[in-house]
Design a protein around this nucleic acid. Structure first.
Lengths: 213, 213, 213, 213
DNA sequence: CATGAATGAGGGTTCATTCAT
DNA sequence: AATGAATGAACCCTCATTCAT
């Protein structure tokens, strides 16, 4: 049994070792320049060994994506736990997403890798990963919105849909960052993001705004 | 002069010829399966010739992107010309974008190709293209918003920022379509899009909404 | 002793277990897609264990070949036992071979695996196997021919040589089945087989035929 | 036009160059050890260049097979032209086949490569090759048989079927050469071949034989 | 006896780009 | 202006075999 445990922990160690290598490659070379042999080299492992733990390159990318989403999730969850009004919470979450995209650009790239791919390569297993990570983020946002509706910070709306809308909109704005030197040259991207986030939060208040008038 | 003109028109003819080939490849094989030799074959031209008119594969993609954006622009402009209230106009534009992404998925893929790429490879020339196409779409939306503000359909806001926000948000929602069978399985993507569009339009009305209460 | 016997039977059990796995792989994936790890998985054994009982992949194939040959042998032997004239017997054997190749294509593939390989890798051990199986089939045919000669159904000839010739010819015809859609497109392969079999049997009768004239 | 001609001849030159490399590899390393990069090296060409002239490794093998069959065909045709009785001709052809398999074992291996493969990978184009080469050999044999029937050297029979039977049988006997040290250890393979060839020729004479009795 | 993780050379194939003609 | 043959590094992935545990 000691053996079995050691085996398990060693297996996890290898998994980490490979993921470490992959992460190193990701951070140093960017997602477009990751090769399996490169990962193997960084991980100080044979190529075949990599394939013993991962079925394909895509699966490694998925794991990396999972890492990124998990990191984002934890960040958001910490905010979610704070004793703060719902509208403030959403704003903090939005800001956290912005920070995340900046500070972990590579993770953001990996997440986009799957989002942007014109192929659909989610095997049932990978699907679960996405459900467990990406989905959980949406759930968290939904909860914040529901809380806000419960304490009348927000007007009544479809929390599930708004959560997706909220995240998608912020993602869309982040995505356009590429254009900050071209189509958006006239404006400051960060300002646009802040503006968008405000709109998204304000949109939830609905009638509230009026009563302030 | 006659010579010079002929030269120019011949050059344009070749350009079109190549783009025709590239478009054919795009529509028949998808963006992930376009090769220079494939384009050359479809264009009935030598590979070398392609390189005489385009510096790289990316430049061809940019031209294709330009096509797509131009198509989208014209669609939006037609809506823009209609004698319709601004809020209605924005809704129509949003719907047109949805239709565009569906009916011209390949063009949408090309547009995303640059947006999603982790590289930044906009030469000054390509920058102009984006300004002329992507930027113009944003301008159009901005105008609609300004119109709406002028006739008090919309509350006062930063039209330029809102235009970006509007488009980015819709783009973000479209982008998440990939997840409709995973993270979004519980919901219908189209419903989310419609919902989002409504929110975006409503967000412009601001106090207006209240007065209706 | 009891221990020794148990040892032996356990060893045999493992052997069978492995062969079962290999056979499953053969039948489900075809000879070109058999991997040691696949066999191990089907056999619910570790890869290393396989190598404890078999020296190489080839040795497993040889065992599988042995199975096939043995099956063919038993089929032929059953015919051999029947109270039937020798010429009829040979015909039945030929037909049985045809049926065998069809119904047990995978076994036939394995047998061909060694026959077609440009390498010569028969260790003395494998040699014995072949002697015990392939050789026995030839012996059986030889016996039928000798019987036929004894009762004057067949003309005198070198029974040993004719047995090889008989089997080799049928094998050769079966082998050309691959060409039934190309070089042999004009003809029906089964008809050719039947024709060949008739010739081979008739060839044994020699003068007999004449007396019928 | 001089240019066009040169182009064509250069193309042929490259084709030959590649095939030379492939043949060298075949003869020196055997069919199981031919790699594309190996061919490229022997041909003093880049790997990509090989793929410019051949679509796949299999296509090169097919070309090599074609070479072998062509060589065999020419050998047989020379015999076919000789002013010799049909039965003698067939015998000579059979002997030539034996010699061919010995002297050009590698070519024989390549031919078997396709015959033995459990896959069916004859694209329509490759099919033509086989028709043009393998088929032509059968045609030649058929002609000899028809000649023999015409001049009453042979009894009446289905020449087309017999031709296939004749070749297939000899091929089958050659195929069993692998077993000469195992199942056939008691006999001499060459003797068996000679014996078989005699039978095959004799089989065509039918009644003739009797009249000699 | 049994395990299964580790190996790594080797496989076939692709393709953007160049350049001599 | 047009060609298209040539490149070759890079790609992902397979698998029989070994050996420390």
């Amino acid at each position: 049994m000691g053996t079995k445990e050691r085996r398990a922990s060693e297996k996890q160690a290898r998994l980490d070792q490979i993921l470490d290598g992959a992460r190193k490659m990701l951070f140093s070379h960017g997602i477009d320049n990751i090769s399996m042999s490169g990962i193997a080299k960084k991980a100080e492992l044979g190529v075949g060994t990599i394939y013993f733990y991962f079925q394909s390159k895509e699966e490694i990318f998925a794991a990396l994506q999972e890492e990124g989403l998990s990191l984002l999730y934890r960040t958001i969850q910490q905010i979610h736990c704070r004793p703060v009004p719902s509208d403030r919470k959403l704003t903090l979450i939005g800001q956290a997403f912005y920070t995340f995209c900046h500070d972990h650009k590579d993770y953001y790239d990996v997440i986009n890798y799957f989002l942007a791919s014109s192929k659909i390569f989610f095997t049932p297993d990978l699907k679960n990963q996405v459900d467990m990570s990406g989905g959980k983020i949406l759930d968290l946002i939904q909860k914040v919105i529901e809380q806000g509706m419960a304490d009348h910070t927000f007007a009544k709306t479809d929390a599930g849909k708004y959560a997706v809308y909220f995240f998608a909109a912020l993602h869309g704005v982040m995505h356009l960052k590429k254009l900050e030197n071209t189509a958006l040259a006239k404006q400051d991207h960060q300002q646009i993001y802040i503006f968008s986030l405000k709109q998204l939060v304000a949109g939830l208040k609905g009638g509230k705004l009026c009563s302030q008038t």
